[in-house]
C-alpha cells in the first residue's frame, strides 16, 4: 500500500496552521513533546490550545515561547514541581486569554463532536463561577422530568489532535492501547497529527488484541517517527519521565531570563532531543 501518512517531524509540524485549535493530552497520557519543540522552532503563532483536560510542560513551553493566543483547560500545572510559571505569568498579564473549564466538560464537549451533536448536557457545574466566566455554557432543563437543570456544553471541534504514540503500522493505524482519551480527541478533531516511537511492519487491524487498542487511519492526517518523542515526559507503560530534565525545565521557567536561555538552547540544537 502507498504510504502517504509518514513524513518527517518538521513536515508534520508544518501541517499545523497558525491560529489552529490544537487539542493535546494530559501529562499522564501520550504527549508529543517532539512535535511541540518542532512547532516552537517553526515559530507557530496564535494557537488555541485545548488541554484534554489539563497540561503541564507542553502548554507551559508553548505559552512561554509565544505560540499561544488562547488556552482552554481544566488546569495547567507542573504537578509535583509546582505551578506552571509561563502559563501563570501569561494569564495574569493578559498576554494569553484563558477559557477556564473543568475536566469532564472538556471530555463531554469532545464527545459531542464525536457524535456530530451541537452540545452535550452535563451534571455539576451549576453554582460554580465557571458558569459565569463561560458565557458559551448555558443552562437547560431536562426535557423529561421537570425542574432538573443541566449545563449545555457546546461541542469542541479541534482543527488538530496532536499526540505521541508507541507505534503505528504502515497503513496509518496508530496503537494507543488504553489511552482512549486520544481516541476521543482524534474522533472529535478534524484531523490528527501523530508522532510515534516507531513505524512497524505489521497490520494493526489484522491482530485482534492490537486492533482493540488501535486508532484507525481514517482519523489520521500524518505520522512522523520521533524516538523518545514524549521526552522529558514519560510514555506510560513504555518509559519513565526524565525527572532531572523536568526539574531543569521548572527551574529555568521560573524566571524570564532562565526561560529565555532554555528556549535559546532548544532553538539552537534543533534535534538534540529527537
Amino acid at each position: 500500500m502507498v504510504n502517504s501518512f509518514t513524513m518527517s517531524l518538521d513536515t508534520l509540524a508544518n501541517r499545523v496552521p497558525h491560529g489552529a485549535m490544537v487539542a493535546v493530552p494530559a501529562d499522564y497520557s501520550f504527549v508529543s513533546m517532539a512535535a511541540t519543540r518542532a512547532l516552537i522552532r517553526r515559530g507557530i503563532k496564535d494557537l488555541h490550545l485545548l488541554a484534554v483536560p489539563q497540561s503541564g510542560i507542553q502548554a507551559d513551553l508553548l505559552i512561554g515561547a509565544g505560540c499561544v493566543a488562547l488556552v482552554e483547560c481544566a488546569a495547567i500545572t507542573l504537578g509535583e514541581l509546582g505551578p506552571a510559571p509561563r502559563f501563570t505569568d501569561a494569564v495574569k498579564s493578559g498576554r494569553v486569554r484563558i477559557k477556564d473549564s473543568t475536566c469532564p466538560a472538556i471530555h463531554a464537549a469532545l464527545q459531542a463532536s464525536e457524535k456530530g451533536l451541537p452540545f452535550l448536557p452535563s451534571r455539576g457545574i451549576i453554582g460554580s463561577d465557571l458558569l459565569r466566566v463561560r458565557p458559551d455554557w448555558t443552562l437547560i432543563d431536562n426535557p423529561f422530568p421537570p425542574h432538573d437543570p443541566l449545563v449545555a456544553l457546546p461541542a469542541l471541534r479541534p482543527d488538530i489532535a496532536l499526540f505521541h504514540a508507541p507505534f503505528a503500522d504502515r497503513r496509518g493505524n496508530v496503537w494507543i492501547g488504553r489511552r482512549r482519551e486520544l481516541m476521543t480527541m482524534a474522533h472529535a478533531a478534524k484531523t490528527s497529527l501523530v508522532t510515534v516511537e516507531a513505524i512497524r511492519d505489521i497490520d494493526l487491524m489484522a491482530d485482534e488484541p492490537l486492533a482493540a487498542g488501535a486508532l484507525p487511519a481514517l482519523y489520521i492526517g500524518a505520522i512522523a517517527e520521533a524516538k523518545n518523542g514524549a521526552w522529558p515526559l514519560g510514555l506510560p507503560g513504555f518509559y519513565e519521565a526524565d525527572e532531572a530534565a523536568l526539574r531543569t525545565y521548572a527551574e529555568a521557567a521560573s524566571s524570564d531570563t532562565g526561560f529565555a536561555r532554555y528556549l535559546a538552547a532548544l532553538m539552537a540544537e534543533p534535534h538534540a532531543a529527537e
Partner: peptide
Amino acid sequence: VGLGAYPNLDLRLPGSFGSAYLYF
C-alpha cells in the same frame, strides 16, 4: 482558580480540574 479579580488575577492557580463536577 486564583486570588483577586478574574481573569487577571493577583495569584493564578492551576485551575478547577474536575472539582466543578465531582463535588456534586
